[in-house]
């Protein structure tokens, strides 16, 4: 049961207020129709399943209903960073 700092509510809240929403920085392709089946499948299905520090999306379902970014260790489950969308991007992420 994680304790998550919601970057919008600015409060540390129990995990049962939140829902996970998958790996972060997977952008929807601009031109889906031009992609090969493999490229499209990569966007829809394939995830890195990274062992270690991992950026992911969470949503404060039973709170402000905002989606935000969480950097979490998938080994220790320690939450290393939270950010609003835009604050951290796939280019400037740590």
């Amino acid at each position: 049961m994680f304790l998550i700092d919601c970057p919008y509510c600015k409060e540390s809240r129990d995990q049962n207020e939140f829902s996970p929403a998958g790996e972060a920085f997977i952008a929807r392709p601009q031109n889906p129709e031009e992609l090969s089946d493999d490229e499209w499948a990569d966007y829809v299905f394939y995830r890195t399943n990274h062992k270690g520090d991992h950026w992911e999306q969470w949503v404060h379902t039973n709170g402000c209903r905002k989606y935000f970014l969480v950097k979490r260790s998938t080994i220790s489950h320690e939450i290393l960073e939270v950010a609003a969308f835009g604050e951290v991007t796939s280019e400037n992420k740590s």
């Binding site: 929403a21 952008a27 929807r28 999306q57 949503v59 209903r65 905002k66 989606y67 969308f85």
Partner: peptide
């Protein structure tokens, strides 16, 4: 729907 609006 919120996810599409907020994240994409």
């Amino acid at each position: 729907l919120e996810m599409w609006l907020q994240t994409e």
